[in-house]
Amino acid sequence: MLRQIKPKNARSKRALAKQEPLIVENPKTTLLLRGTSSSSLVNDLLTDLHSLKRPHSVKFTKKNDIHPFEDASSLEFFSQKNDASLLVFGNNSKKRPHTLTFIRCFSGKVLDMLELHVVQDTARTLQQFKGEKCKTGVKPLLSFSGAQFESPTLNAYTQAKNLFTDFFRGQETTTVDVEGLQLLISFFAGEDAEDGQKAQIQMRCWRIITKRSGQKVPRVEVEEMGPRIDFRVGRIREAEEGMWKESLKKAKGTEARVKKNVETDIVGDKIGRIHLGRQDLSELQTRKMKGLKRVRDTDGEEDVLELEDVISQDEDEDGGVEVKRQKVA
């Protein structure tokens, strides 16, 4: 745990204020770090992830003696110290070769962890792909292909999907530059093999090329940009129920209010329902006929007052004036 610091000057006060919880949050910072026996492949992939995630990413170069699934306290420390809630820990051992552990933190505590082993033969770094790369800091398009990601129960694949969405989505915005749609990160998971081996999660990064098609939308082509990583799923730590629930809480008033009585039908037409009150039929304007006109008699004052509104519109000027005069008298 970090000790509570009491700010002694304006600068440290500002720095601490920046780390305070917000209603609308900043994009999450990612911290990339390596274990004591990391392989060069893992290091390269960490560098690639760093370059994909920039500018919301911090990369450490020193070795750290950490075993995330045994004791995550140092990771929590790093998370708090760097104000980073996404961590990737790379390590390589005989038992767990080329491992990247994705860790999510919530309020400085580990929320969930997912251990993924990189398949060494198929892995390619960003550098190994020739050709153009997309700009740094663009918000990527994400796609998840395969029935495994759509499982209704929580498993490694759905957790991976949620985690990768959180990891790569970048800044939460309402507007995006159309020019900036140039990176697609896609994840694939096939069916499990018949011999019981779990399916790999395959990550591919593509540069999007759009061509004119003569229609409203362009023809889209993709060109692999790297990195290319195939993951075997390792250990998982799921989020605790209460903590997960707490982390999904939304501030009051931030959610868009549901518009009542407005629907969209299958065709895409907007349909609104309007509630009119009960119609007052006594005031209904029917056809006027001379024979049905009430006879104007000036016996009592009440009678005349009752007539007032009818007179003001339909009758000649004299009638209206006459009524007024009587009222004053």
Binding site: P21, E25, S85, F106, N162, D166, S247, A251
Partner: peptide, 10 residues
């Protein structure tokens, strides 16, 4: 998509 917050609500 429901994604967890970084820190709890202020």
């Amino acid at each position: 998509t429901p994604l967890p917050r970084e820190k709890s609500l202020p």
